[in-house]
Simulated scan of single mutants.
Amino acid sequence: MYEVIAGGWEQLEKDAKYIREHVFIQEQGIASEDEWDDFDATAVHFMVYDKEQPIATARLLPQHSVGRVAVLMLYRKQGIGKILMQHIIEYARQHKLPYLKLSAQTYVTAFYEALGFHVQGEVYEDCGIPHIDMILELT
Rank of each mutant, 00 (worst) to 15 (best):
E113Q: 15
T57P: 08
K51S: 13
V69F: 03
E52P: 07
Y107E: 12
G116D: 06
Q78G: 10
I25H: 01
F46K: 04
A92M: 09
R59A: 04
V123D: 04
P54I: 09
I25N: 01
G67E: 01
L72P: 02
I129Y: 01
I30F: 00
D38N: 14
E52D: 15
I83V: 15
E113R: 13
Q28F: 00
Y49M: 11
Q105S: 09
I25V: 15
G67D: 02
H45T: 08
K82M: 09
E21W: 03
A56V: 13
I55A: 04
K51F: 09
K51R: 11
F117H: 08
V23D: 03
M85F: 03
L97G: 00
G116R: 10
A31S: 13
S65W: 00
E35A: 05
A31M: 09
H64R: 04
D37Q: 10
P98I: 12
L61T: 04
I88T: 04
L61G: 02
I30W: 01
G67L: 04
V23N: 02
E122T: 12
E33I: 06
A104N: 04
E35C: 05
D50T: 00
E125P: 01
T109N: 13
V123Q: 13
Y18V: 05
C127S: 14
S103G: 14
R59M: 06
V44K: 09
D126R: 08
K51V: 13
T57I: 10
P54L: 04
Q86R: 11
Q53K: 11
H118P: 00
S65Y: 02
L97K: 11
K77E: 14
A92L: 10
V108A: 13
R59T: 08
G121Y: 13
A43V: 07
T42P: 02
Y49S: 11
F111S: 10
G81R: 03
A70H: 05
Q53S: 10
